[in-house]
Write a protein that binds this DNA or RNA. Structure first.
Lengths: 83, 83
DNA sequence: CAAATATATCGACTTTTCCCGATATATCAA
DNA sequence: TTGATATATCGGGAAAAGTCGATATATTTG
């Protein structure tokens, strides 16, 4: 999912009908591509959000998720320095 | 364990009586510090070895493990580029 | 407000990982 | 060769993670 969200336009063409990509991609799009149930995907995303790898923005009935690039940079640096 | 192995002299003083640090640190030293059973630690180390994070060298009845720094560098870069 | 839609949460079940004790293997010393 | 020591492997029970269906919550539309 994290890799998919690097290129939302490429990986989630259906997102066009849901307000575009400004705020990210909504759960339904990710669910369809993942082939997992809605509940599973929703839980995954909330875990990734709590871990700081993605950000959520609720707009109306939709929740948009997008990557937080800073977190990946930080993880990479952490492995370099602490591990 | 991986962090411990960054500074073997500091974290495994007992290793001095086991041939020094040239080849790394032997399992018993790591086990004592980890507070886990011998079998658990041995399994961990072999997993880390298969994953490429540490290297093993058998000398007599001892197996010495030391870090493979390249693997950490590679992981850090992989997160930067692929994730 | 009621129905429809999108997402979140809950409880249960399955799969995987963690960790142990017992045992096997390898080496050394006598 | 025998006993002692260090490590590895195996089988199993406990803990955690993955996944689901059912249901709850929030929002929009009529």
């Amino acid at each position: 999912m994290l890799e998919w969200l690097k290129e939302p336009e490429l990986n989630f063409p259906g997102q066009l009908e849901h307000g575009g990509f400004e705020h990210g991609v909504c759960v339904g799009q990710i669910q369809a591509k993942a082939g997992l149930t809605q509940s599973t995907v929703s839980e995954y995303l909330s875990i990734l959000q709590r871990a700081g790898f993605i950000e959520a923005k609720r707009v109306g009935q939709w929740t948009y998720y997008k990557r937080n690039e800073g977190a990946f940079e930080a993880l990479s640096k952490l492995i370099q320095s602490n591990l």
